[in-house]
Write a protein that binds this DNA or RNA. Structure first.
Length: 110
DNA sequence: TGCATGACGCCAA
DNA sequence: CTTGGCGCCATGC
């Protein structure tokens, strides 16, 4: 049984609030939760059981807008296809106009 | 208790 | 742009 830490719940809660056509980074989520050094923990929490929580994990990428997790989805192209389906252009496994698509929980959600 | 691993981030060469 | 290294924190052996 997973520890069910609030950290997990908080991560999932933030990710669920990401609007379609937008995306955020692991570091941004970690910083919003107060764990500025916990970017890895965010990714760890996601990969741990995001499929069970029904989280739009495809809207979470690394700091450079790269789809670092695309290889972990159903198929290596699922993540990209989902993003493009929502209006987010992806090229070479990276989000185009990353600055525009970036959704900062501390700024947008606060 | 120590070491290796990881959906990260930052920095140097 | 590509490597290589360090720091971070939690988990597994």
């Amino acid at each position: 049984m997973k520890k069910g830490n609030d950290f997990f719940n908080d991560v999932y809660d933030v990710v669920r609030q990401i609007p379609a056509g937008r995306a955020t980074s692991y570091g941004a989520i970690a910083a919003y939760l107060g764990n500025k050094r916990g970017a890895r923990m965010v990714g760890w929490a996601m990969g741990s059981s995001y499929q069970e929580q029904g989280i739009p994990a495809h809207r979470v990428v690394n700091k450079t807008g790269e789809l670092s997790a695309s290889q972990l989805f159903e198929t290596p192209t699922t993540m990209q296809e989902r993003l493009e389906s929502e209006g987010v252009k992806v090229e070479n496994n990276r989000i185009v106009n990353w600055e525009q698509c970036f959704w900062d929980p501390e700024k947008e959600l606060h």
